Amino acid sequence: MATQRTTTKPPKNLAPAPVPVEPVPCQPCGGTGNVAITVRVGRKRRPVGQQDGLCLNCLGEGIAPAA
């Protein structure tokens, strides 16, 4: 008959569950996805106002892209 095992295995060190990381807002648009673009008119291209444009850094998502 086989000998009976009397010792127990040590518990495995399990890594703690990863903490969910909150997304960082995009720097140029501040997390809105839009940036102000100056509108220029006339022959001398004088600025007359601003309009909203798509943020080219995050492509309108508002979340900073992963490096």
Rank of each mutant, 00 (worst) to 15 (best):
M1K: 06
M1G: 14
A2Y: 02
A2M: 05
T3M: 08
T3K: 08
Q4H: 02
R5S: 13
R5A: 09
T6D: 13
T7M: 04
T7I: 13
T8C: 10
T8G: 13
T8V: 15
K9G: 12
P10W: 01
P10N: 04
P10K: 07
P11Y: 08
K12Q: 13
L14R: 11
L14T: 15
A15N: 14
A17S: 14
A17G: 09
P18H: 01
V19H: 09
V19I: 15
V19A: 15
V19C: 10
P20R: 04
P20S: 14
P20A: 11
V21P: 01
E22I: 13
P23I: 07
P23F: 04
P23S: 10
V24G: 01
P25S: 09
P25L: 04
C26E: 03
C26S: 11
Q27F: 13
P28K: 02
P28V: 14
P28N: 05
G30D: 05
G30R: 00
G30S: 01
G31D: 00
G31V: 09
G31F: 00
T32W: 02
G33F: 05
G33M: 01
G33W: 02
G33Q: 03
V35I: 15
A36N: 02
A36E: 08
A36R: 00
A36P: 07
A36S: 07
A36H: 04
I37E: 11
I37L: 06
I37N: 03
V39A: 10
V39F: 11
V39M: 02
R40M: 09
R40N: 12
V41G: 00
V41M: 01
V41A: 07
R43N: 13
R43T: 15
R43E: 13
K44Q: 10
K44G: 13
P47A: 11
P47I: 07
P47Q: 09
V48P: 03
V48H: 11
V48A: 04
G49N: 04
Q50W: 07
Q51V: 15
Q51T: 15
Q51I: 15
D52R: 06
D52S: 14
D52Y: 07
D52H: 03
D52N: 13
D52Q: 11
G53W: 12
G53D: 14
G53S: 08
L54A: 03
L54R: 03
L54T: 15
C55E: 08
C55S: 09
C55V: 10
N57S: 09
C58Q: 08
L59R: 07
G60Q: 00
G62I: 06
G62C: 04
G62E: 01
I63N: 02
A64E: 10
P65V: 08
A67W: 00
A67F: 00
A67L: 01
